Computed example of a mutant assay.
Amino acid sequence: MPKRVDVHARRTEILDAAVRVFARKGFAASRIEDVAAEAGVAKGSVYLAVSSREELLTAAFDQYRARAREQLAISGAGSALDRLAALIRATVTMLAAHPDHARVLLDVWAARTPIDMATVYAEYRAAIAELLREAGADGQLRAGIGPGHAAVIVGAIEGCLVQWLADDQVRLADLAEPLVQICVDGVRR
């Protein structure tokens, strides 16, 4: 009797292997054969899951994007600034827990890929801008804070991420509270 393969589970294994390979070798230097070897499957099995290396990158990024959207969906309790602090902490925790996905982001930023990073950033900025708008309406913000500050907050998180990836002395998880102090307490009235 032929062995039954859970197609969804196999695809997940292949995507996880692709993330590890892309993180270790970089997208440009990675081959489908590398991903197959990492996943412990034949090259043809990879092609049953995806049609190309670019589709592997896109699918791996989609895993990251789903995690990012989960963070944005966390409503939490408390004031808008309390929820912003919780969002920053949750985002840093999620990124620190998935360093290979974070490393693949560098390739996404640097390479010409079909991945729409602008939409991901727009979603984060919109969520943060809404929290800032609520905080302003509640009188929690100091003068001059507006929607443009959402891009600065996203940039602060991304900047810490890049430093963590580039410098073994930087621990991303340790930067959650300093980020909250600068990005939340720094806008508080």
Rank of each mutant, 00 (worst) to 15 (best):
3 K>C: 09
155 G>V: 02
81 L>W: 05
98 H>P: 00
36 A>R: 03
137 A>L: 13
88 I>G: 03
23 A>I: 00
136 G>F: 13
39 A>M: 12
38 E>S: 07
136 G>C: 08
68 A>N: 12
92 V>C: 07
179 L>M: 07
130 E>W: 06
157 I>R: 09
73 A>C: 15
3 K>W: 08
163 Q>D: 10
25 K>W: 15
35 V>N: 04
56 L>I: 00
102 A>F: 10
167 D>A: 12
25 K>Y: 10
109 W>F: 13
30 S>V: 00
101 H>G: 09
39 A>P: 01
103 R>S: 04
115 I>T: 01
169 Q>S: 15
69 R>N: 07
70 E>H: 08
25 K>T: 01
46 V>M: 14
113 T>F: 12
27 F>K: 02
157 I>L: 13
29 A>M: 14
165 L>Y: 11
29 A>K: 10
99 P>R: 09
170 V>Q: 05
107 D>P: 00
125 R>Y: 09
19 V>T: 05
177 E>T: 02
114 P>D: 11
160 C>N: 04
36 A>P: 00
57 L>W: 05
32 I>M: 08
52 S>Y: 09
175 L>M: 08
158 E>L: 12
46 V>E: 08
85 A>V: 07
21 V>E: 04
72 L>W: 05
51 S>A: 13
12 T>Q: 08
92 V>P: 01
2 P>K: 15
127 A>P: 00
42 A>N: 14
131 L>H: 05
64 Y>E: 01
10 R>G: 09
74 I>C: 03
20 R>W: 13
30 S>E: 07
52 S>T: 07
128 I>P: 01
154 V>A: 12
70 E>K: 05
52 S>G: 02
19 V>M: 08
89 R>Q: 15
74 I>P: 04
177 E>V: 03
170 V>A: 14
148 G>V: 04
92 V>F: 10
137 A>H: 09
182 I>N: 09
127 A>T: 08
130 E>I: 03
133 R>C: 03
161 L>H: 09
169 Q>R: 11
16 D>T: 03
15 L>W: 01
46 V>R: 05
26 G>D: 00
185 D>Q: 07
65 R>S: 03
132 L>W: 03
159 G>K: 06
185 D>A: 13
136 G>W: 12
63 Q>M: 12
156 A>F: 11
17 A>R: 02
75 S>C: 11
165 L>N: 06
30 S>N: 10
74 I>D: 13
16 D>C: 14
113 T>L: 06
93 T>Y: 11
34 D>E: 11
23 A>V: 00
42 A>V: 03
4 R>N: 13
76 G>D: 02
106 L>K: 08
176 A>D: 01
36 A>F: 02
140 Q>K: 08
23 A>C: 06
69 R>F: 12
106 L>H: 11
53 R>I: 01
7 V>K: 13
174 D>K: 11
89 R>N: 10
113 T>C: 06
69 R>P: 01
151 A>P: 02
160 C>S: 06
164 W>G: 01
25 K>F: 11
24 R>E: 07
135 A>K: 05
128 I>F: 07
10 R>M: 03
21 V>Q: 05
111 A>V: 00
129 A>W: 10
51 S>W: 12
152 V>W: 06
91 T>R: 07
156 A>M: 06
95 L>V: 05
83 R>G: 10
75 S>L: 07
116 D>A: 12
37 A>G: 07
25 K>R: 13
70 E>V: 14
48 L>Y: 15
163 Q>T: 02
